[in-house]
């Protein structure tokens, strides 16, 4: 061993060397070329399929169902009206499912035997029966008893359905707050409610938020099911338009594209949230 002493510590260190000199990355051109080939193949398949059916494409008739401009005034088309109903259903049932989810999560983590039982019965019932059957149960049995219209029946059913997922998300969020946090708040004399409100929940919300946004995406997709009870959402409007115009291909593609635009933008928002949460750690 050579013993030595370094007297001066470097203050003017160089900036990092350019990346890519040591590890070269794949060119983005290759990705773009692959994508173009893929798109060509898919469009060719669709086009050929339509031709084989001797389908008469009428895309020019679609835009009126999205929007019209009459005398410089913007008028919503029927698909946009349907989309707004879909949003309304999604927002109300989301709020409902958060409330149901929080209550269920707290009941499951409580010491109360009947509380746990209630939460478990709810979760098992919702998870082990088809959503469509649940919707019929709500529509034909619960709605007439409670006296609510189809829109709120849809909201209630979807709220209960997604609530079972929200419950698990919230429970996971609460339980991933380290145990030391509860212990510290116990040692400071916090009661159960204040502990949850000021210590545990504020820390679990950043963990809960990204999967909750994922739940909204699911909700938007699942909400299409309300078309079977004739709530005028995006899917129902699509069905109606097709029965009037026989443009099955164009309208279904358009409806799917509208769902896609909404859910993909939400997914991008989720990944942004997640990357932000990851940085916050």
């Amino acid at each position: 061993m050579i013993f030595k002493i370094k007297q001066n510590i470097h203050n003017n260190r160089p900036p990092p060397p350019r990346p890519g000199l040591l590890f070269t990355r794949k060119s983005p051109l290759i990705d773009i070329a692959q994508l173009l080939i893929l798109i060509t193949i898919i469009s060719w398949v669709i086009f050929q399929g339509a031709q084989a059916m001797q389908y008469n494409w009428q895309w020019y008739r679609v835009d009126q169902f999205i929007y019209r401009i009459i005398d410089g005034e913007f008028i919503q088309g029927r698909l946009i009206k349907g989309l707004i109903v879909t949003f309304e259903i999604t927002i109300f049932s989301m709020l409902l499912s958060v409330v149901i989810g929080l209550i269920t999560a707290l009941l499951r983590m409580s010491n109360s035997f009947s509380g746990k039982l209630l939460a478990n019965i709810y979760l098992e019932l919702i998870r082990n029966t088809p959503l469509l059957v649940q919707l019929f149960l709500f529509y034909f049995i619960i709605a007439p008893i409670v006296g609510i219209d189809r829109f709120w029946t849809g909201v209630l059913c979807l709220g209960f359905f997604e609530g079972s997922f929200a419950a698990e998300i919230i429970r996971a969020g609460i339980q991933s707050v380290p145990r030391g946090q509860s212990e510290a708040s116990n040692a400071l004399g916090f009661n159960r409610i204040n502990r949850l409100r000021y210590i545990i929940l504020p820390q679990s919300i950043p963990l809960i938020l990204p999967p909750m946004t994922g739940l909204i995406i699911n909700l938007i997709k699942h909400s299409a099911i309300v078309s079977v009870i004739a709530v005028a959402d995006l899917t129902t409007e699509g069905l109606n338009i097709i029965s009037e115009t026989f443009m099955a291909f164009e309208i279904w593609f358009t409806v799917a594209a509208i769902y896609l635009v909404v859910t993909v933008s939400l997914s991008l928002f989720v990944s942004w949230l997640e990357s932000r949460a990851a940085r916050g750690r």
Binding site: G180, A184, A187, Q203
Partner: peptide, 9 residues
């Protein structure tokens, strides 16, 4: 506590 257990938020 050993691990401080401060409230991080």
């Amino acid at each position: 506590f050993q691990n401080f257990n401060l409230f991080p938020h």
